[in-house]
Design a protein around this nucleic acid. Sequence first.
DNA 1: GATGAATGAGGATTCATTCAT
DNA 2: CATGAATGAATCCTCATTCAT
Lengths: 230, 230, 230, 230
Amino acid sequence: MSLSKLFHDNTAVAAKRERRKEARPGELLDAALDLFVEKGFAATRAEEVAARAGVSKGTLFLYFQSKEELFKAVVRENISGRFTEWRAELETFEGTTSELLAYCMNSWWERVGLTRASGLTKLMMSEAKNFPDIAAFYQQEVIMPGHGLIRSILQRGMDRGEFRPMNLDYAVYVVIAPMIFLILSRHSGGVCLSSEIDLDPQKYIAFQVETILNGISAPAVAAVANRKAA
Amino acid sequence: MSLSKLFHDNTAVAAKRERRKEARPGELLDAALDLFVEKGFAATRAEEVAARAGVSKGTLFLYFQSKEELFKAVVRENISGRFTEWRAELETFEGTTSELLAYCMNSWWERVGLTRASGLTKLMMSEAKNFPDIAAFYQQEVIMPGHGLIRSILQRGMDRGEFRPMNLDYAVYVVIAPMIFLILSRHSGGVCLSSEIDLDPQKYIAFQVETILNGISAPAVAAVANRKAA
Amino acid sequence: MSLSKLFHDNTAVAAKRERRKEARPGELLDAALDLFVEKGFAATRAEEVAARAGVSKGTLFLYFQSKEELFKAVVRENISGRFTEWRAELETFEGTTSELLAYCMNSWWERVGLTRASGLTKLMMSEAKNFPDIAAFYQQEVIMPGHGLIRSILQRGMDRGEFRPMNLDYAVYVVIAPMIFLILSRHSGGVCLSSEIDLDPQKYIAFQVETILNGISAPAVAAVANRKAA
Amino acid sequence: MSLSKLFHDNTAVAAKRERRKEARPGELLDAALDLFVEKGFAATRAEEVAARAGVSKGTLFLYFQSKEELFKAVVRENISGRFTEWRAELETFEGTTSELLAYCMNSWWERVGLTRASGLTKLMMSEAKNFPDIAAFYQQEVIMPGHGLIRSILQRGMDRGEFRPMNLDYAVYVVIAPMIFLILSRHSGGVCLSSEIDLDPQKYIAFQVETILNGISAPAVAAVANRKAA
DNA sequence: GATGAATGAGGATTCATTCAT
DNA sequence: CATGAATGAATCCTCATTCAT
């Protein structure tokens, strides 16, 4: 092989590398998210992350000081505030609040529950204790806006007389708990499910929505709802 | 030293040994529960469990074949053993099924949720995938009996016309999801709570119970309930 | 630094690394053979093998999945790999079958008996029961091909009328037993020898060969042989 | 001395067992022989020996300072010189030397090969290196008299012109090697056998005897033998 | 920048041996 | 004498991290 050829190769390779170089951290974070979600922090091996990202073990540590730093980066990277978009949607919604809540829960499932993003939730619940600073960050960036959104909806329902008066500090969890549970059950291999068959998320959500609406609607509305259900 | 004294010593000493031997498994189980809950299954070192119980590494393995067996014993000791007692209570209950469900959820909180045992639930959700054997065991010993209990209650309500007809496969989760959520929120440092202040479990449960009952009661009953609430 | 210098450095350095990497397994195998033969399989510590090969514990497991795999590799390297070569030699042999058998037994001694590899035989006889996987492997890779080879020779002799008709299932051991015995006597410090002085393997084999050939030759041939011996 | 006398010895030993306390060490040695033979020295657990002897682990160490001491005691205990009796039998034998040798090999199989005593041989071959003093002892007490016996027989054959002139230092092994091989193959789970089916010892010995006699007989005798075989 | 060979601390489990009873 | 609970050294194997190339 001639020197010039070598040189040529080098530049070509370098150019290619340049492009890839900037993508590297992203590919690593991507692979890491998958694996952390699937196996948890401790059980995820650095080498496997690297392999899945198509790089060598050494490269991983070139971009992230340690496995812990990688974890933190994964969480930070994936907390993108889609909340403004969501909040806009909510404010322009025109149906009843029951319809709004039902719409919200269903579309949350499609846009979040079904995607890898839901893995983040599981990740945080599993590892929060070991990464307090990350937990605080997550709290700020995800939990609080999310809860705010639900509160707004419930407040709208109460304001319009559709929902009975409730202490929103507790009412939000009536909506949130079932969704979190759904996510966790899926990401933990169904340890909390009766049968070995995954439950049907659509039906699960439908049932929850129905019950919740029954449970929080103002008496008159509930009567109507119940009459329909019967 | 008199013969009788010798005799006395021997029995006293033997008795003491006996006591220690019989106390050992309990002490180990106790230490193990603490550490499993605090650090998770994988991150808990056998030696540390032994140390906390005041014995050496070897002694732990004298009583429990392996770390997995130790964990199973912890689960048995703290959860699965209680189901028979619980089921009995349920079968002799005399009030309405709404009262029964409310009673159940509240007393579950006191007897399980508040205790260290609840940490096992969080542990399972976090690590189930990495320890399929343990997951299967937990499923058998805890999840299935637990779900069975809830089903029985809901069935009782439906049989008596107190609850509306429901697909129990999904209805159970209306009861279970909020409880699991409560536990997880507490054992993950509140990553899923709005504020940094833990919510008041009593109030949380009260609200959930109220909403659930509203949500699942038969129309007539619900109307009455709603009237009361209003 | 010139480009050519860079080129030079890179290849030189890379080559050296390459050499080390490729030498590693061989060095480990070498160290392992020594130790396995000296101490047996169970009593040989992985770390010691690594140390003797001049690497760390971890490196050993980089090249061999487990101690068992290491052992299998040692066997493959030192014994089973040689059978094809041997079989070829046997098939192109042109003398009488008596000559062939004598040649075989003598060259087996030189190529196996005298080398460290023969220690593996003793090891297997001592520890086979405790490591069934290894025993099965050894059976497959060493015993069966070895016996096959001997059978072929005896069959050749019978086909040509040089040897009397024999049940080969038992005849093979007439050849094998003395060889195994020779190996064992050497690797067990001579516990089965009359004197404390090792017997002379050449003479031992010569005597065995002579007797065996006398013992298995067809009558006419034997008569000639005996006349010569006398 | 007849076979029935040998039986007598056995019952005497059994009677000794009756005396509980004094028999303890004997029972332990008995159990230990079994286990050492079956599993080897390292793989035999002290507790298992104790359990098989019907005593506790502690008791074992009451009688034997360590596992090594136990091993030495096992070997010493089982080296009982039955050689005088055997030598007598040989000296009064009246048939041909071929018949004598055949008789010897067959009755050795019945009296030694088939009994647990043969386990001792395997034990020594496996562990001799680790217990040099015991090995020397075994050499003195078993190997040398045994070889002497064989030598006597071969000498008798040579003296009578039945066997061809041989260097007895090597000739003994023509007789010994096949017997040792037989024992080892049985005590090592057949690692050195072609098939998984144990070979039939009777047939094995018959074939070896025939071949050996063919191999060592004086020309004239061999011719007759061969003529018969053909 | 990238690589991947090498490292070695760390953790589960076993078992000979001791010693209080 | 006998017991068996307790010990802890010993050993295989894993994996985050480093660094020579």
